[in-house]
Measured scan of single mutants.
Amino acid sequence: MQRVNMIMAESPGLITICLLGYLLSAECTVFLDHENANKILNRPKRYNSGKLEEFVQGNLERECMEEKCSFEEAREVFENTERTTEFWKQYVDGDQCESNPCLNGGSCKDDINSYECWCPFGFEGKNCELDVTCNIKNGRCEQFCKNSADNKVVCSCTEGYRLAENQKSCEPAVPFPCGRVSVSQTSKLTRAETVFPDVDYVNSTEAETILDNITQSTQSFNDFTRVVGGEDAKPGQFPWQVVLNGKVDAFCGGSIVNEKWIVTAAHCVETGVKITVVAGEHNIEETEHTEQKRNVIRIIPHHNYNAAINKYNHDIALLELDEPLVLNSYVTPICIADKEYTNIFLKFGSGYVSGWGRVFHKGRSALVLQYLRVPLVDRATCLRSTKFTIYNNMFCAGFHEGGRDSCQGDSGGPHVTEVEGTSFLTGIISWGEECAMKGKYGIYTKVSRYVNWIKEKTKLT
């Protein structure tokens, strides 16, 4: 034993070699072989497995989906700052455009905790909710729209109204504003409101030439003092309507412009014939205590009207009353817009006519005020429907199939267009061939041609 100890002390290297040989010859039971080890760690190889990531292109799944990435790591994937920024906006807080917040056709661009709407022409605001041009839906104005110097929408209202708090709607500024039905039992019968379409306001006024200088022999019209197929109006439903009495009662109609003036057809009036105007009328054979009678003290036909040349060209006249009318729910003026808007309103496509005229061709006159909704007829169809001249200051309205029309005794009465609950004068009943005849239409004086003249002559002093 002493000898062994001496050998170990003198030859430590020998001992180490012996131990190493023993270990190498022993069977290893701690580690699995290569094949079995792979069965336990069965993990798919990654895209760049075996390579240094710093030297390969980034992978979106590896960089940002398996674990949260930084902007720089995302930049490695896209290799483009702009594309990385677009991805980053949604990656950080989701897609803010998912709810489609942009209105009126706006395009949404996502941002971090926010979004941006790219608005089409005519709109602005956070969600493109603000109209900035009158060309689109009248700028959301209830009545009139004008573009300011910086191309912003400025709404306005006709006389007797003021802008509401929203700067879009119009509200009454006087007790009985024009064009409004205020009798409670008839307010439910107000005709369907007309909503502004998209309009090209630059070209809204037709490029028409008034044929002022045409000389033409007097034409022989049949029954051209021209509501057939209409309905009984309720008291106060058309408070701007008046009836004219002269040699015979209810020979023509008219509309209240203001307390002192009536507008009617020029062919209705004769110099030297006494005319009485009755406002607030409903049943011409009954006294309903809503009527107001006034005498006409002055007749002003349009300066281009000449019955000797043509009885229905420039067929418009103004009547001055001896005493002002007292405005109330049964006696209310009709609204008159400017030339541009009167023309736009007419193009809405349908209007209402009213009167006490004959209820059928050569038949009896109506006792109760009649009204009828009539569609506008395109000019080409209008011209083809008659052998008589249709001037540019006239328009056609009615039904091709016949059966409904204005008729004798309705002449001078109103053709009105309702705009968001307020009625505007767009025409004056003038003439036609018979009444409600198939293929024939009622012919009306186009008020847009005469609004400046009306307003100039009827100013209240």
Rank of each mutant, 00 (worst) to 15 (best):
K234M: 07
C117L: 01
G125P: 03
G50S: 02
F424I: 01
G402Y: 11
C102P: 02
G442P: 04
A207R: 06
S423F: 15
N328C: 04
L163Y: 01
P120E: 07
W453K: 00
G125D: 03
P375L: 07
L367G: 12
L24N: 04
N203A: 09
L32R: 09
G105K: 06
V257E: 01
K311D: 04
E286N: 09
A37P: 05
Y22L: 07
D378H: 07
A250R: 09
K247E: 10
K68L: 07
Y371H: 11
N59W: 01
Q219T: 13
N147Y: 10
K293S: 08
A397G: 07
G402W: 15
G254T: 01
H267E: 02
A149C: 06
V174C: 05
P101Q: 05
A436T: 14
Y371V: 15
Q216P: 12
P197H: 14
S204C: 06
Q57W: 00
E35F: 10
G363L: 06
D378E: 10
N203H: 09
T422W: 02
G412N: 05
G106Y: 03
N59C: 04
S350N: 15
K274F: 06
T158C: 07
E82C: 03
L130P: 06
A149F: 12
H289D: 09
S220W: 08
E456H: 08
F360G: 12
E82I: 05
L327G: 02
N151S: 10
S156P: 00
S411A: 14
C170G: 01
N452Y: 07
L383P: 03
M6G: 13
N5V: 15
Y352L: 09
E73C: 00
N135A: 14
V278S: 07
L319W: 02
A250T: 10
R373D: 03
G160W: 02
R62K: 03
G21W: 08
G412H: 05
F123I: 07
E79A: 08
V227P: 11
K188H: 08
A307R: 11
A366M: 09
W88F: 09
N283H: 10
P333G: 04
S99T: 12
Q237I: 08
K387L: 06
T218K: 10
G94K: 11
Y201N: 12
Y312R: 09
L244E: 01
L318S: 00
G280F: 02
E54R: 01
G50T: 02
K247S: 13
N36H: 12
E79I: 06
Y441W: 04
D212V: 11
V228F: 09
F221K: 12
D95Y: 11
T194D: 11
E259H: 06
K168G: 05
D198M: 09
R384N: 15
E231L: 08
E124H: 11
S25G: 12
P324T: 04
I336F: 05
Q216A: 15
G236F: 05
C119G: 03
G94V: 13
I256R: 00
V273I: 09
C18G: 10
G230N: 13
N48T: 02
D223W: 07
D111R: 10
D33G: 12
E270G: 10
R140N: 13
P177T: 03
I297E: 05
C117D: 02
K311R: 14
S365A: 14
I316C: 02
Y330T: 03
Q185S: 13
L244V: 08
E165D: 15
T458F: 01
E98M: 09
T264W: 01
G21C: 07
P239H: 00
T332P: 00
N258A: 04
E73Q: 01
S406R: 11
V374E: 02
I344R: 13
L327F: 15
S385R: 12
I336G: 00
P172T: 06
D95L: 09
L163A: 04
R162M: 10
G236H: 09
K293Y: 15
L23D: 03
E281M: 13
V353D: 01
Q143R: 01
L32A: 14
Y391R: 10
C141Y: 00
T29S: 13
L319A: 05
Y115L: 03
C268K: 01
E142H: 08
Q219S: 05
N306I: 05
N166P: 02
K234R: 12
K51Y: 07
F31Y: 14
T276S: 11
E61C: 00
G357A: 15
G13T: 15
G351N: 06
P235K: 09
V56L: 06
L346E: 04
V181I: 11
R46V: 01
V331H: 00
E73K: 00
P101H: 06
E10I: 14
P44N: 13
E456M: 09
T225K: 11
Q167N: 09
V4W: 09
V326K: 10
N147G: 13
E231R: 12
C97D: 03
G13K: 13
G230V: 15
C117E: 02
G253D: 04
Q90H: 14
K247I: 10
T461V: 11
D150W: 07
L19F: 13
W240T: 01
K45Y: 01
W240L: 00
E270P: 12
